[in-house]
Write a protein that binds this DNA or RNA. Structure first.
Length: 576
RNA sequence: GCGAUAGUAGUCUAGUGGCAGGACAGAGGCUUCCCAAGCCUUUAGCCCGGGUUCGAAUCCCGGCUAUCGCACCA
């Protein structure tokens, strides 16, 4: 067993040396919060993303879209990121410490510091002591630090843009197009996998907190009153370790609960959230996260965003970082669609027809524009709108426009009682959002896959990736480089590549060294050509985890390897 | 961002002012009938920029990065 405090160092050292993860732009000096994926890291990340797509795009049927990483300012004004993502800060002139301006003021007993504009804060702070050095702050500048990267679009016009802080907004801004694509029905979902950016003040923790990172997000649009998942039975009896609000308050351990029970008992708000909690558990275990070091923690009421009704984080136990959030699953209600609808003036609703249209009596007020126009001039339209929405009395209707109340006599409008057919209703969907941090998942898989064991007095280092995640899928070796063994091994290597299997060929040094080299990068299977191969056409197939070997006929090798790599066949079921 | 500590080959490391050394890894070769064996050859390094000095990996200043603490983490 490896000491937990060491594992981060060992994993990152291996990842650096063998081409998984590198510091970015090293020759010019790296920048914190940015990493490069080397050849094997990029492959592994791609495989994890593709497994994610198997779950969400193929199985759930939520098609993937791709939006720009640069977005115009109004998107992020509407989403709340311009306001909510920025902190008012100031720098102490004496000690140079950067401070949250509102925190400093509040700490000195200033009321409403959190909602105070910058110039007022600066004023208040004059006499406030610096929490760091104790000196009065005096004439400090208060400036907004926004966690979004800013940019400008095009020359001259200087239209302001931001690098997206999450992929979700692109899906919301495409809502009407998507609704049409999905033929005006609920529920439907859309996913996006891509880069997002947050200009963290001080990123640490390697791959855990990055300034540029990859997200995989699904936005599932559901009827606000129908949060039962149509395929809930798939995960109804699936058991997941849950650390609910109750367990956190009593500081007790997570409890294993089946999803149907969790919804019935009200631990999880609805079937949709529960379904994606279970699906996420399924997915994370599939890519190589250790199920014993995985839990789902519910956000405490004061922790979750004000619009979310329920939120669960998939957390994974890291030797270095403790419990780390990999995935957030939230019911975002209609917060985003409301915000974008309001800001853009576009209706972001779904027209849902009733099964049987119902007839309704309605009273309609029809303003006489010919008379209203000359009388109210510029305000005529507003008055007419207010009139239509009013409840007229016998003496007329009272309407308030621009703070003025007018009495409109009955001669200026008609009241018509009519029976209308109501064919359906406009509904603003709620959004269920599972949001995955791909880079953190990659790190968690690396850390959980890393193992050291003693073999004949030597340390063997292995990355025990599940075969579908392993960057290199197979290796081919000649036992020795003579008597035609190397030529035969070369043929087999070409066969594998021709079959779409990513295989490496290695004939250097001793066979044991080659096995170890592949163990270290997690290659699950090795094929060795020996003298028996030359006699009867069989090869040795060696398993990374157990180092066990079986003899396999060359004709079935490719089919067998495909099944082993997919995970549909286990090596342990093969006879030696 | 502040404070402390550190930065020498791909990796780990020795080197307190005087020719930068080793181990492992890598490459080429020999050897080798299944798990980092052995032998020969070989590639490769003082984080960046200034300063002090006859002379700096070493001392000083600044920057960058990493680790820890603080702050930050919608």
């Amino acid at each position: 067993m490896i000491a937990m405090s060491d594992i981060y160092d060992r994993v990152t050292e291996l990842a650096r040396r063998r081409g998984f993860i590198w510091p970015s732009s090293e020759i010019y000096g790296s920048v914190a919060g940015f990493i490069d994926y080397g050849p094997l890291g990029a492959l592994m990340k791609r495989r994890i993303e593709d497994i994610w797509r198997d779950f969400y795009v193929i199985r759930e049927g939520y098609y993937e879209i791709e939006c720009p990483t640069v977005g115009v300012e109004p998107i992020y004004v509407a989403s709340g990121h311009v306001k909510g993502f920025s902190d008012k800060m100031c720098q102490c002139l004496r000690c140079g410490e950067y401070l949250r301006a509102d925190h400093a003021a509040a700490g000195a007993g200033v009321a409403n510091a959190g909602v105070m504009p910058a110039d007022e804060l600066a004023c208040v702070l004059r006499t406030v002591p610096c929490p760091s050095c104790g000196e009065e702050l005096g004439d400090v500048k208060v400036f907004a630090f926004n966690l979004m990267f800013e940019t400008s679009i095009g020359p001259g016009s200087q239209r302001k843009g931001y690098l997206r802080p999450e992929t979700a907004q692109g899906i919301f801004t495409d809502f009407t197009r998507l609704l049409r694509f999905y033929r005006d029905r609920l529920p439907f979902g859309t996913v996006q996998v891509g880069k997002s950016y947050r200009n963290e003040i001080s990123p640490r923790q390697g791959m855990i907190r990055l300034r540029e990172f990859t997200q995989a997000e699904a936005e599932i649009f559901v009827h606000p009153d129908r949060k039962d998942h149509p395929r809930f039975d798939r995960y109804a009896s699936y058991r997941v370790p849950l650390l609910g609000i109750e367990q956190q308050q009593s500081e007790s351990a997570p409890v294993e609960v089946a999803m149907d029970e969790a919804v019935e008992k009200g631990i999880i708000a609805n079937q949709y959230v529960a379904y994606y909690v279970a699906l996420t558990h399924d997915l994370l275990v599939r890519i190589g996260v250790d199920g014993k070091r995985l839990r789902f923690r519910q956000h405490m009421p004061d922790e979750r965003a004000h619009y979310a009704t329920d939120c669960w984080d998939a957390e994974v136990l890291s030797g270095r970082f403790g419990w780390v959030e990999l995935v957030g699953i939230a019911d975002r209600t209609d917060y985003d669609l409301q915000a974008h609808s309001k800001a853009s003036g576009t209706a972001l609703t779904v027209f849902l027809p009733l099964e049987t249209p119902r007839r309704e009596r309605r009273r309609r007020i029809i303003p006489d524009m010919k008379a209203l126009g000359p009388r109210f001039r510029g305000n005529a339209k507003a008055v007419a709108d207010a009139l239509s929405a009013s409840e007229p009395g016998p003496d007329g209707a009272r309407v308030t426009v621009n703070g003025e109340t007018h009495l409109i006599p009955p001669s200026l409008y008609q009241v018509r009682e009519e029976e209308v057919e109501v064919r359906g209703e406009e509904v603003m969907p709620h959004v269920i959002e599972p949001s995955y941090g791909i880079d953190r998942m990659c790190y968690a898989v690396l850390e959980h896959a890393y193992a050291e064991e003693m073999v004949e007095g030597e340390v063997r280092r292995v990355l025990r990736f599940p075969p579908p995640v392993a960057p290199v899928q197979a290796a081919v070796f000649p036992l020795v480089n003579r008597d035609g063994l190397d030529g035969r091994a070369g043929e087999i290597h070409r066969d594998l590549i021709g079959a779409g299997i990513l295989a490496e060929y290695d004939d250097s040094g001793a066979i044991g060294r080659r096995y170890r080299r592949q163990d270290e990068v997690g290659t699950p299977f090795a094929i060795t050509v020996d003298y028996t191969t030359m006699e009867d056409g069989t090869v040795t197939l060696r398993d990374r985890d157990t180092m066990a070997q079986v003899r396999v006929k060359r004709e079935v090798l490719i089919l067998l390897l495909r099944n082993l790599i997919k995970g549909t066949t286990a090596f342990s079921t093969l006879s030696p």
